[in-house]
């Protein structure tokens, strides 16, 4: 191939520059390699930055990681402080966010994609949802403060796990809805037609044929959205999540804190030792994130294999 590319006029096939064609193979291959080099550089840069970040955090915080660190409550003394309450808070919040946002988001996505007629109303909702996906998270915090913390206080108990989780669920709903719609749209229409032509109702077609195919994509989108939620700090601070919690939540109405808030709290203290705690906290947060993502990948692969 190489000599073919370097000298097209001497192509063994003799078609090099016949008639009005100028094959210019070497030039075309040069563009190929240019582009693949550019793509490679982009990937390398990203990986490098990520490696630097993780490396920096590991150097600062790895030594601080211990079982005690995971199982202790925060403390005024940096070497005794741990992030048990934040870790448990994050798990509570993420579970509730998933439980609330998955059915709501997927349901809304299915409705908009499979059931709604193409009307001005449906289009208005669509535009709104797409816009909501771009609203800064602190705005959701303000909304959560008014609606969940104040108006719904009898149910949520004010500045509680439930208020925080509902706020974050609201924040990621647009992303889940958009991901659901994209996945549904990727299912070939011929399958819906096949279902209808056998006398299936719309829900039978969606439930039996469309949804199983779209589920891996929906799960991927939901996990990406949850990954965003797990790192959110601003809206939770807005609704008043505490930074110093020395007890475990008892129910959904308990006050709470989460990992990013704990990290933020430690890093903003003057003592060096707390900064080390902060780095260790970041490692734990990344670990939880990784665990969540990999279990989603496993689940998706399992679902895909069934078809």
């Amino acid at each position: 191939m190489a000599n073919l590319a370097s000298d097209p006029s001497r192509s063994p096939l003799g078609g090099g520059s016949k008639g009005r064609f100028k094959s210019e193979l070497s030039k075309r291959y040069r563009i190929d390699s240019l582009f693949s080099a550019a793509a490679w550089t982009a990937v390398t840069l990203l990986v490098l930055v990520l490696a630097l970040l993780i490396g920096d955090v590991l150097v600062d915080g790895a030594a601080r990681l211990s079982w005690d660190f995971l199982t202790s409550f925060p403390s005024r003394k940096a070497e005794e402080a741990g992030l048990l309450s934040a870790l448990v808070g994050t798990i509570w919040v993420m579970v509730i966010v998933a439980v609330v946002s998955f059915p709501l988001g997927v349901g809304a996505g299915i409705y908009l994609e499979e059931f709604a007629e193409d009307s001005w109303f449906a289009r208005a909702i669509e535009i709104n949802i797409n816009n909501l996906a771009g609203v800064p998270s602190i705005i959701y915090g303000l909304l959560g403060l008014q609606v969940f913390v104040r108006w719904m206080e009898p149910i949520t108990g004010g500045r509680s796990i439930l208020s925080g989780a509902l706020t974050l669920a609201l924040l990621i709903l647009p992303v889940v809805i958009v991901a659901t719609r994209e996945s549904l749209r990727a299912v070939p229409d011929s399958l819906r037609q096949a279902g209808f032509a056998l006398g299936a109702t719309r829900w039978q077609v969606v439930c039996n044929q469309v949804l199983p195919l779209a589920l891996p994509g929906i799960l991927t989108g939901t996990i990406l959205a949850l990954s965003r939620a797990i790192g959110e700090t601003a809206p939770l601070i807005t609704i008043g999540a505490l930074t110093f919690i020395s007890f475990l939540p008892e129910d959904l109405q308990s006050p709470f804190t989460v990992l990013p808030i704990q990290v933020f709290n430690w890093i903003s203290r003057p003592q060096e030792a707390f900064h080390t705690n902060s780095a260790a906290g970041i490692i734990v947060l990344l670990g939880v994130l990784l665990l969540m993502n990999s279990s989603a990948v496993l689940l998706r692969n399992y679902l895909q294999k069934r078809h």
Binding site: P188, S190, L191, Q193, A194, G195, F196, A197, L198, G199, A200, T201, Q204, N208, Q209, L213, H307
Partner: peptide
């Protein structure tokens, strides 16, 4: 559509087992 069924231009079996392809229509009806 249960009584007047349709077969399409491009074969469009469900991405399921052969058995399930047949059983689906019967089951939903």
């Amino acid at each position: 559509r249960r009584q007047v069924v349709m077969v399409f231009q491009k074969p469009n079996p469900f991405p399921k087992s052969i058995y399930e392809n047949i059983a689906f229509g019967a089951r939903i009806n």
